[in-house]
Design a protein around this nucleic acid. Structure first.
Lengths: 137, 137
DNA sequence: ACATTTACTTGCGAAAAGCAAGTGATTTTA
DNA sequence: TAAAATCACTTGCTTTTCGCAAGTAAATGT
């Protein structure tokens, strides 16, 4: 485990130390959309993360209390990763990132429904997302 | 200028390619709180960013259309950096990052009022922040 | 004219990213 | 039941980025 020095007391800086890189929030995104994932499923995401980087990010997210490991019900060879409460609480950030992107880039077809739901009733959508993810804890 | 390959069509991935690192959103934070900043002011922020990294980040934020350079009214030796509309639109993300951090770390005294205002009326606070920043464009 | 300020560059060692291949523990298959 | 696949990682190595210290050139202050 690596102890990282705190750069400042700023809450934004604190947050970026936990998930401020190009990969961490993509892992959070996958766990948010799929609820629970195995290492292999995470490795197969569209962005093609290298397996050593994935392992490193999973470890740091776990050390930061954002995700946790669970044993897979079907097999001891598999591991389930899931968001902790701290990780679930990143929902609003992920939502806002999606909305920002919606304004400045083309959204792929399969995500349009997701964004339509958010735009129809953001508060309700977020409340529901929390409920669903928290029911798995 | 560096052309970065798009990792995927995911809106989260798109966003992280623009500001997914440990420094970019700190610069955005400073520009958001102070409206306009010079290079020197940005360099003096609490996190002590190295000047070459600052220059690199400012360039990439500019290339991504998140900030723009303006000439300083007082001196040709100075440059003003300010958020574009695309940068101002990051407000909700910054707000949510602040709220997440509030739940999971100690907030310094001088930021508590800021967070109290957000908690009192998030929508109103955001609306007002947009208005103030957009009035400088 | 000379020192200072301002916005950057440059050089270089250290750290992290990224690719390919490998490992050891399960689990499936023949 | 032994060999082949699957699974979750590691390891080794090269490339890229970070981060510190120092330097530079234009503009400004004294």
């Amino acid at each position: 485990m690596k102890t990282q020095k705190k750069r400042s007391d700023c809450p934004v800086s604190f947050s970026l130390e936990a998930f401020g890189d190009k990969w961490s929030l993509l892992i959070v995104r996958d766990l948010m959309l799929k609820k629970k994932c195995t290492y292999g499923e995470l490795a197969k995401s569209d962005e093609k993360i290298a397996t050593n980087i994935l392992a490193a990010r999973l470890l740091s997210l776990e050390e930061n209390g954002i995700i946790q490991k669970l044993e897979h019900p079907d097999s001891k060879a598999k591991v389930l990763y899931q968001l902790t409460q701290k990780g679930i609480d990143l929902i609003p950030i992920i939502i806002e990132i999606n909305l920002w992107a919606e304004k400045y880039t083309e959204i792929p077809e399969e995500r349009k429904e997701f964004l339509a739901q958010i735009n129809a009733d953001k508060e309700g959508f977020i409340r529901n997302a929390f409920k669903e993810l928290e029911s798995n804890l």
